[in-house]
Design a protein around this nucleic acid. Structure first.
Length: 739
DNA sequence: TTAGGTTTAG
């Protein structure tokens, strides 16, 4: 008695099989015949765990299939191993191996007539003097590229669907026309159903049962291609149908022409040959013109009331509701344009990352799952990727709002129309796509959310002017220095200029100081003045004029003041300071290179081209009011000044993988939520800006690791010499609240 | 054994 493990190389056994034996086929295996010096050869299609019999003897059972006639109804036979042989074989024998068995005993099978196998089984043990040759099948899987291994592959034949006969066990290929994802049956197993069709245009509905979800065919969508081995054909209600039989195994492939041929297998070991490849390629081509696919994938962003659809999503949260329903909070990377119904549950009942649930609260939808789906839904892990089939959307009228409504999402009980839930692996292409969509943008649109996203290459190839919703990453930006990005803009002549620095201002003030205040202008019904002697500057004086309100003088904190000569520190406590100089007749504004108004640290400038400065007397009408409004706009208007506005002007180089374009950002404070006029003198705001830019465009990261920016941009023509160039500008876009 | 295509009605 012995077990021989034989590697098969180049189609030939590494060590020779004994040549004194004669091969016997299944038909010749009959009780009462002499099987001494005979051997039986078959492929292991199934094996069971090693167990012990009541008397303590080790026991191991496997099912062998005859290679020559794999499609015959009874091409398989049970083989029972006892004692040390059971122990030894259980260790080495795997599904797909070929066994050569001699010295066996033939006995009537106890399951004869029930399992469509041979009416007898083989018994092998030390006592029978058995010899077992285990030919290790070096399976020709897709990943096996070793040239030295030659597979021992059982030769499978596949029956076209128009040649099926009741009562046979066959191997099939077909394209999925309809399917129900696995659901919990009322028996002991999961059940799934699939209707397949092939080039003969004949349909076959197949039922699959297994206690393990993994052992059922992994069908994700209509058009997938399946290969079934050892499926039993039976008649039911006058129609032929397929049903799992012992040793059933399946492979499923994406049905798209040109897609990678990666099998989703129901068992660890499987064969895959060039012939399989050819069959799949042919079926894929047939599918494109003969099978209507499931239609465009519906995302949460394109749902409508009263529809049934399949949703690919991620499970964010889960909660029990009552005995017959369960709540699933899911997200698919897009945003539903309608308000959606939120199911009230106790926070303690909600499973999932509460921070994430809160963060995604405007993106997730609540799905109520009913009846038979509850059991499967309970076992779903938060974070897993799901496809929910035949999800129903209902409109729910809102109380107190005659035309208001929100959408309810229901997965009703039953399995009609393939209703159900399936977990998708992370390797699934739809899951990969969903993960990309799920990356939250660091910017959001303030308007236009309903615009579809346009790829940058489309934008680049289109005529201007147009507006686009784009999604891209920030490759680089200019200028790098924050102070260089703040400019002064004239909304009247559209000119841009640099913000003057403090030194320019001081020079202008020095000039004014040289002349000195005009003594004739110190008395006025508009103001009261105080003269100060400057320190260390001889006779020169500084004049401070306090503007009266309705001819009353208020406290300095409530006053607008004018200063001639030098800006003294305490001006920051006033409502505002207007730097002035004296002429022979009037107090007038300084050169417009200087600010026309100071408020705290903020300097207001006027446009040199568009302003028509008036004398300070022009403030009289404003000052005449009892409660004058000294805001910069009113003051500028009274003084004939067109005020300049502080803006951020930056150039963003955006990239979405399809193309790259430079878009200008022209922003007062909407985009950054930081005022361009205040940022120059606030360290806190400058730090916020740095932090934002570092989030948008972190240094040292590859494009793939950069965050997405959701932007609204417009294209426009700019004349440069005789040529027109298309430029792009970002607008109606802002930094997301939570970055 | 189970389910066996054709939407729940919450």
């Amino acid at each position: 008695m012995s077990i021989h493990v034989i590697k098969v190389i180049d189609g030939a056994p590494e060590t020779p099989l004994p040549n004194n034996l004669q091969k016997v086929d299944l038909r010749s295996l009959q009780l009462g015949f002499d099987h001494v010096n005979r051997y039986f050869q078959g492929t292991v299609i199934l094996s069971y765990p090693l167990t012990k019999l009541g008397n303590g003897t080790e026991f191991f059972k496997a099912v062998l299939q005859e290679l020559e006639n794999p499609c015959l109804r009874t091409s398989t036979i049970n083989i029972l191993f006892f004692g040390k042989l059971a122990q030894g074989c259980a260790k080495v024998v795997q599904q797909g191996d070929t066994l050569v068995v001699s010295g066996f005993k033939l006995a009537k099978s106890s399951s004869a007539g029930e399992d469509d196998r041979h009416c007898c089984h083989l018994e092998v043990s030390e006592e029978t003097g058995a010899n077992i040759y285990v030919c290790i099948s070096l399976i020709n899987t897709l990943n096996n590229t070793s040239p030295s291994t030659h597979p021992v592959v059982p030769k499978y034949t596949y029956t076209p669907l128009n040649h099926l006969k009741d009562g046979t066990v066959v191997n099939l290929y077909g394209a999925v026309k309809f399917f129900k994802p696995p659901y919990v049956s009322k028996g002991t197993d999961y059940c799934s159903m699939v209707t397949i069709v092939d080039q003969s245009n004949v349909k076959l509905t197949c039922m699959h049962f297994n206690a393990s979800l993994d052992a059922l065919p992994k069908i994700y969508k209509i058009g997938d291609i399946v290969r079934f081995h050892r499926i039993k054909i039976k008649e039911y209600n006058g129609q032929i149908q397929g049903i799992t039989s012992a040793g059933f195994a399946s492979l499923t492939f994406d049905g798209t022409v040109g897609a990678p041929m990666v099998p989703r297998a129901s068992s660890k070991l499987y064969t895959f040959t060039d012939e399989d490849r050819k069959i799949i390629e042919e079926l894929r081509i047939w599918v494109t013109s003969n099978l209507s696919n499931s239609g465009p994938t519906v995302k949460l962003s394109d749902v409508q009331s009263m529809m049934f659809f399949d949703l690919t999503c991620q499970l964010i949260g889960k909660a029990k509701v009552d005995g017959s329903s369960l709540l699933l909070k899911v997200w698919d990377g897009s945003k539903c344009p309608f308000s959606t119904w939120k199911v009230l549950v106790k926070e303690s009942d909600l499973e999932g990352d509460s921070f994430l649930i809160h963060q995604l609260r405007f993106f997730t939808v609540d799905i109520l799952v009913y009846d038979n789906h509850v059991q499967l839904a309970k076992s779903l892990k938060v974070g897993s990727f799901l496809r929910i089939f035949s999800l129903h959307i209902k409109q729910h009228a809102l109380e107190n709002q005659p035309d208001g409504f929100c959408l309810e999402f229901h997965l009703h009980g039953g399995t009609g129309y393939g209703r159900g839930i399936m977990v998708l692996p992370e390797s699934n292409t739809d899951v990969k796509e969903l993960k990309v969509c799920q990356q939250l943008s660091v910017t959001v649109l303030t308007e236009h959310q309903h615009f579809d996203v346009t790829a940058l290459n489309t934008v680049l190839n289109s005529l201007a002017p147009q507006q686009y919703h784009i999604r891209a990453k920030l490759r680089k930006f200019e200028p790098q220095k924050l102070y260089q990005s703040v400019k002064l803009y004239c909304p009247k002549c559209n000119s841009l200029q640099e913000v003057p620095d403090g030194d320019d201002f001081n020079l202008i003030l020095q000039d004014a100081l040289a002349t000195g205040p005009n003594p004739d202008l110190q008395e006025s019904s508009l103001y009261e003045s105080v003269l100060w002697d400057t320190e260390n500057q001889g006779q020169r004086q500084i004049a401070v004029y306090f503007v009266k309100h309705g001819e009353l003088l208020k406290s300095p904190e409530e006053s607008l003041i004018m200063i001639e000569g030098k800006i003294i520190k305490y001006y920051i406590y006033c409502l505002g300071v207007i730097p002035v100089r004296s002429t022979d007749d009037d107090l007038v504004l300084l050169d417009l290179s200087a600010p026309f108004l100071l408020q705290g640290k903020l300097r207001h400038y006027g446009c040199k081209h568009c302003s028509n400065p008036k004398t300070i007397e022009s403030l009289r009408s404003l000052a005449a009011q009892e409660q004058p409004s000294w805001d910069p706009t009113n003051i500028a208007e009274a003084l004939g000044i067109v005020p300049l506005q502080y803006v951020f002007v930056m150039k963003f180089t955006l990239d979405d993988g399809t193309g790259t374009l430079d878009a200008y950002l022209f922003d007062y404070e909407e985009f950054f939520q930081i005022s361009a006029s205040e940022v120059l003198f606030s360290n806190i705001l400058q730090e916020s800006m740095k932090r934002i830019m570092n989030t948008l465009c972190p240094s040292g990261k590859t494009l793939g690791n950069l965050p997405w920016l959701e932007c609204f941009i417009k294209s426009y023509y700019v004349r440069e010499g005789i040529e027109q160039q298309v430029h792009y500008q970002i607008f109606d876009t802002m930094i997301a609240e939570d970055i």
